[in-house]
Amino acid sequence: MNQRSAIIILIVVGLFAVTLPLYAGPYPQSIGQMVFLYMSLAVSWDMLLRSGQISFGIAGFFGLGAYTSVLTVLDLKLPPLLSILAGGILAGVVALVVGFVVLRLRGMYFAIVTLALAEIFRVIINNWASLTGGPEGKVLSSVIFGGDARLLYWLTLGVAVLTLLMSELFRRTRIHFALTSIRDNEVVASSSGVNITAYLTIAFAVTSALQGITGAAYAQVYGFVAPDGSFSTDFTLLPLAMALLGGVYGSAGPVIGALLLGVASEFLKLYIPYGHRIVYGLVIVVVILFLPRGIAGIVRRKRAPREGGHA
């Protein structure tokens, strides 16, 4: 589809999304909240993937953001909206510090260390009971906006939009060139003047901060944090499945994947209460084996039939 129809679709879908609370009840709105939060995670995961690095640690920064938000509200009396920002900032700063060590790694080493990182964050939060309330977690005395479903919906929509804006920023500025060249060939990128460390750090810190903001919003919307809940592997598994299904290396793919799987997950949870997550694992396996570029990849291929050799 060309530029013009893409913009029209974007406007229509956008309007629909924004105005949903005006004619839909609380249930669709709560589905929307989850979809937007997962969409944000899926998009931010994709943003780092564009540099060639897989992170399995989404849940880690998500949980850090969630805890920061709740703790700053409870202990520092920070206004809830500001606490969401604080969640993002803390996650970003932790990513910078950790990144100093971790960004020296590539490929499987980086990926597994991020997996371990999420677990480490959970263990620290779990054990530092004096600060975090330990395994029981913490509860907010009130949910943000007093629990007004519409405002919660628009908050999560806002988080998703923020992430999408950052994703497009990554796509339309020189960052796109830096990350893509690093992904394709680091050595050549470096001798073309790209400062690999700097750009990987930017990508890692920004995406982690976005994941932190998402976690913080989640905590404010649902009103509690707990080590197992806030650092659940769901927050790594679902975004990955969504981004892969929708198609990686772009904003549209994760959005499509989040819409499809996010809505589907509501029904899955009803019919397969134990182990519905198997579907996400299967989605990942099937996509990798048969459709590595996801749904968006099919669309792109239809658009550009003059392919030569490489897919």
Binding site: L244, R277, I278, G281, V285
Partner: peptide, 19 residues
């Protein structure tokens, strides 16, 4: 990347199957 994602998917399938 594909190999990592695949085995990650398999790990999820196995644990959720048992679940």
């Amino acid at each position: 990347l594909n190999q990592l994602l695949l085995t990650f998917g398999i790990s999820m399938v196995l644990s959720q199957l048992v679940n």
